[in-house]
Design a protein around this nucleic acid. Structure first.
Lengths: 146, 146
DNA sequence: CATATTTTGTTTCACCTGAAACGATCTTGT
DNA sequence: ACAAGATCGTTTCAGGTGAAACAAAATATG
């Protein structure tokens, strides 16, 4: 018998969607950034420059979505889009000065929200949760799911 | 510094999306059921009859999405849509015989997939994960998200 | 009672999404 | 060097999405 309360795919989806929406409220209106745009920024905040494909790999977004988010961010002067010297198919995406400044304002907001969200968990519980997420991702890989 | 690897909103979203897609592969082609339709079935599988609003509450889908999924399932003869005798605004949704038969074939598929997916976790880890999801959902409620 | 307000589910509309087609570039094999 | 094929990112297009407007029905208020 399928018990939805304990059916993990269902529970994960509901939780993830609520978290995404709640977090988006922190930056959408204030900075005019969509969820896909925020994801691009978050990934570039860690590592730069990256190609669109790199972002696709790291974000699990499809390449059309990444392309649109990148285009919007470039048009707003937040990202610089250069081409790779050795391979002109590849973009080399990085923050402009303005983009870096924006990221430096948005990222703390996101981290603050996360801290508040996780306030009820101990450090051990947080680590355990991340560890479980890691293992489940790995399991998906083993199962041949992308 | 925002470390995306340990940023839970990001990790949850990537995981949930992959899980949803992988699971959807189990039933989409074989039974012609979309993800929202499957969710409606899963909820009705546990409790019947329900109104559309009940399904909205239990699924975190918006009411337009539920309305469309229900309409499609009714048109396919999978759900019966009766009106409540005391309140004619309310639908009383339940499986037809065909719908019950379909559910009885799809649900085991979903459970099998989940079992395979969770094969690497001990029973304790699974319980811990569900417990954490519960608490995070509750936390979102406290934060006024929904 | 009469009317205002609320609740339920559908529909509209502008936007988002992703699979597939595409042009451009690079790589492989001969 | 050349053709065939792969890879990268953009664009197209058919369909999905959700906020808001809506109609129908119930409830609350004076």
């Amino acid at each position: 018998m399928l018990q939805l309360d304990s059916f993990l795919p269902y529970r994960l989806n509901v939780l993830a969607k609520r978290v995404s929406k709640a977090l988006a409220r922190q930056y959408e209106d204030r900075f005019g950034i969509s969820i896909p745009e925020w994801r691009v920024l978050a990934i570039l905040g860690r590592e730069q420059p990256l190609s669109s494909n790199d972002i696709v790999d790291r974000s699990q977004m499809d390449k059309a979505k990444v392309s649109r988010a990148v285009t919007a961010l470039v048009e707003r002067g937040i990202l610089a889009r250069a081409t790779h010297p050795q391979d002109q198919r590849l973009l080399r995406l990085s923050f402009t000065a303005e983009g870096r400044a924006l990221y430096d304002r948005v990222a703390p907001l996101a981290l603050d929200w996360e801290r508040d969200f996780l306030a009820g968990l101990t450090a051990e519980e947080r680590a355990a949760l991340l560890g479980l997420v890691d293992r489940l991702e790995k399991r998906l890989g083993e199962m041949g799911e992308g």
